[in-house]
Amino acid sequence: MNPVFVLSLFDGLLNTVILSLLTYLFGGLVGLAVALGRISPSKPVRLVASTYIQIIQGIPLLVLMGFGFFGPSILGFGNVSALAAATIAMSIYSSAYLGEIWRGCLQAVAKPQWEAAECLGLSRVQRMTRIIIPQAVRIAIPPTVGFMVQIIKNTSVASLVVGYGELTYNAKIINNATFQPFVYFGLAGILYFLVCYPLSELSRMMERRLNVASR
């Protein structure tokens, strides 16, 4: 094992984490808008949101990466960096899933809660921000953390299209030089595991705690 290569793997891991964090941020923001759109009182808004989800969920992430990379220049925005392209693709991808997960959580806050707030004269925005979202957040934490693990692993798809130097990409480059796939892909796998496992555990732990709380 060459220490330079191992360092390169850690460098890749850092880039994986950066891409994941950017995806949480932008995917989360768009996902929230999608979730709220799915339960909007306006039918056209609902339709737009559900069509968006269906289209995005129907496209492989790899193809989205292609759009993220080539799309901006085709549309005349010029070339984008590998990180920007990967962030665009990952954010679009995760927003469709997070939107649907969160829609479910919002709707899981029982309808009677919504009615009770309505009958007290609270406006729609007040009902949402004071009653529904605070309760939905509790329900949403375990599946959201679970999906965050998916996001970390799926950032590896960026290695195939956009040439962003994340963990899998660096492992691939090292393998091209060393022809030791078992060692370096194995190490990459361990690094993914070390990041993902604590998150998975956290998700399971919160699920257990939540089940106790919600009688």
Binding site: P112, P134, R138
Partner: peptide
């Protein structure tokens, strides 16, 4: 007032 109380649990 409803059958199921519908207080806000949080």
């Amino acid at each position: 007032v409803f059958q199921g109380y519908n207080l806000f649990p949080h």
